[in-house]
Design a protein around this nucleic acid. Structure first.
Length: 462
DNA sequence: GTAGGGTTAG
């Protein structure tokens, strides 16, 4: 351009940026510098500058700079288009960046834009799953109060999020207030409430929900019934669970493999062998084939009931027949071996699962840690906490509690270790601490000071 | 398009 008269115009800058993005080899830093240079020394960026920059950044998945450019665009008095903001919102959601998506939505609302329904639903779902329930509800209300009406598919994820985080009464209040405002609920909405109340231990309220949904002409489905069966089973009320099973069949709703897996697990806990065999037969007769959850229900249930040998046989059979294994099944297998004081074999199995492409989880390592405490003592376990190859995981509060429970005289040392690793002691950790202090009778120990500090900071669990 | 099942420390 040196050979041409005059200075480069804003169009030249825009074209340069456009071509630079197209070249594929992009330094975001350089582009931002270029933009800031234009801003300071001219030519002043125009709407096209912002669009080119934002689109280019988005193509390369650079959310942060895209959002920065949009903010700059607004700050310079330009109005971003619906299209570009919608694109930014979708990308933020694709990348799972909820904060960026919230910022983008805020900008959209400021200009009176409303996201498309699929994008909005995705946003609500993701916020709910990330436990950002209040944000989900806030976003929903912001649009609802402006007169935009999204249906039950948008609202159900909010209901579920409340019900999964022990706030089912809040969910119920919302349920009624939205019902008054015209939302027509479906079976998934009622199932959320049934789930929430069961989870918080209000099974009777859950049964009332079941009645109410039926009264409103909404038939419970296999998921609704399985939720009820699951929570009755978890409370050991297997006869109640069987009643629900009978009722669902009478209503013409067929149980599926999930339903049976839940029941089998509790039957194993209760050691009801003949019933277990009966249900395995039913599964077979109905044409289902047992899956990895069935095996986990059986082996995990038997192990928990103390039937270690049987659980072990079942899993080693599954491994040798190369049934579909997964990490949870391997973990139960490791647990069986450790409970039989076969730590060496457990360690071999840990290697084998890695070889077969199953990444051990914290659960796997904590099971091994427990095995080490049992067989080789706490000193070696402590060594493991520091030097074990934990793959992508780190010792967590369960790891520390495992060691503590094997030797709680370590308590004055371990909270410090946990603190250094930014782990918050839980009620089990403090339980060990209190037990230890009661038996040692030493009020000046460093441990009690730590606990005191934690209570003052409000970070200790009651 | 939303929803249900298995694995670790007392």
């Amino acid at each position: 351009m040196r050979n041409m008269p005059g200075k480069p115009t804003v169009y030249d800058f825009n074209a340069l940026m456009y071509c630079y993005f197209k070249s594929g080899n992009v330094s975001f830093h350089l582009l931002i510098e270029l933009y800031l240079g234009m801003k300071s020394f001219g030519p002043a960026p125009n709407a096209s500058t912002f669009n080119t920059l934002c689109n280019g950044m988005l193509t390369f998945g650079n959310l942060k700079d895209s959002l920065f450019i949009i903010e700059e665009m607004c700050g310079s008095g330009f109005v971003p288009s619906f299209k570009i903001l919608s694109k930014l919102l979708k990308k933020s959601l694709q990348f799972g960046s909820l904060m960026d998506s919230l910022c983008t939505l805020e900008i959209m609302l400021k200009f009176g834009y409303v996201p498309t329904e699929p994008t909005f639903n995705m946003m609500i779902c993701m916020l709910g799953k990330a436990g950002m329930i209040h944000e989900a509800y806030f976003v929903f209300s912001a649009l609802f109060n402006k007169g935009y009406f999204f249906g039950v598919h948008t609202f159900n994820p909010i209901l579920w999020a409340f019900c999964k985080s022990n706030q089912s009464y809040t969910a119920l209040q919302l349920f009624y207030s939205m019902k008054k405002r015209g939302i027509l609920y479906n079976v998934c909405s009622y199932t959320a409430l049934v789930y929430g109340f069961c989870r918080e231990g209000f099974q009777e309220v859950a049964l009332q929900c079941l009645d109410e949904m039926q009264g409103n002409g909404c038939k419970p489905n296999v998921i609704t019934y399985t939720v009820l069966i699951k929570f009755f089973c978890d409370n050991g009320r297997i006869e109640q669970a069987m009643k629900i099973l009978t009722e669902m069949e009478r209503e013409g709703c067929n149980p599926d493999l999930l339903t049976y897996n839940v029941i089998i697990r509790e039957l194993c806990h209760q050691g009801r062998m003949s019933d277990i065999l009966e249900f395995i037969q039913i599964i077979d007769q109905k044409g289902f084939s047992p899956d990895s959850y069935t095996h986990a229900a059986l082996a995990g249930g038997l192990l928990k009931a103390g039937n270690i040998g049987f659980a072990y046989e079942l899993l080693s059979d599954a491994v040798s027949k190369s049934c579909s294994m997964d990490v949870a099944l391997y973990n139960i297998y490791l647990h069986c071996l450790c409970r039989q004081n076969r730590l060496k074999e457990a360690l071999t199995m840990l290697d084998r699962m890695i070889e077969e492409g199953f990444m051990p989880t914290n659960v796997s390592y904590n099971i091994i840690l427990d095995g080490v405490c049992r067989e080789n003592g706490v000193d070696e376990a402590l060594d493991l906490l520091d030097h074990f190859k934990w793959e992508a995981n780190w010792p967590d509060v369960v790891s520390f509690n495992t060691v503590l429970l094997h030797n709680n005289s370590l308590i004055s040392q371990l909270p410090g270790d946990m603190y250094n690793k930014r782990l918050k002691p839980d009620s089990l950790s403090y339980g060990s601490l209190i037990t230890d202090l009661c038996s040692s009778g030493d009020p000046r120990s460093s441990a009690i000071k730590r606990m005191d500090e934690d209570f003052v900071k409000g970070s200790a669990e009651v």
